[in-house]
């Protein structure tokens, strides 16, 4: 399906992928030539526990329409429980984002193992479509208005 760039709103989603599971899983999706929307630009980190809520807010306030944090399934974290810390931060961040008026579909924490290429593609696909129907976030413009 060829998408014409100028016509549709293309969500800009920043992704934080942990190198042991999610990033490897995303690579696998590519190696398997699975086609999925290119709207999540990945930033590689060692662990989902490295993701500082500051990064998420920085992304949203700088022009991103959404943020995806992807790490290892609970119990499988290479660093034992970095992903548990990620959950702790995410849950509280979610409450604060709700107060800010950022729809919860825009910031997601997902578990993708190194062998789940297909799953990664589907997560990106569903997140992209959900945010596409929500529309652009345009946070900077909203603040200045």
């Amino acid at each position: 399906m060829v998408i014409e760039l100028s016509k549709r709103f293309e969500p800009k989603i920043v992704g934080f992928l942990c190198k042991w599971c999610a990033y490897t899983g995303a690579d696998l999706a590519g190696t398997s030539r699975i086609k999925y929307p290119p709207n999540v630009t990945p930033i590689r980190v060692n662990c989902s526990g490295r993701v500082d809520p500051t990064f998420v807010l920085k992304a949203l306030s700088s022009g991103a329409d959404g943020v995806l944090i992807a790490g290892c399934h609970p119990g499988d974290c290479h660093y034992t429980n970095g992903n548990v810390k990620a959950i702790r931060r995410f849950k509280l961040l979610q409450r604060m984002l709700n107060q800010f008026g950022v729809e919860k579909e825009r910031v997601r924490l997902e578990w993708v193992s190194a062998s789940e290429g297909e799953r990664y593609a589907r997560v990106v696909e569903s997140m992209t479509e959900e945010i596409r129907s929500l529309g652009p976030l345009n946070w900077k413009a909203m603040v200045e208005a």
Partner: peptide, 14 residues
């Protein structure tokens, strides 16, 4: 620190 609230949120929830 860039954002005080984000850092406190991170520290507290951690």
């Amino acid at each position: 620190v860039v954002d005080q609230g984000a850092k406190m949120l991170s520290a507290l929830s951690s």
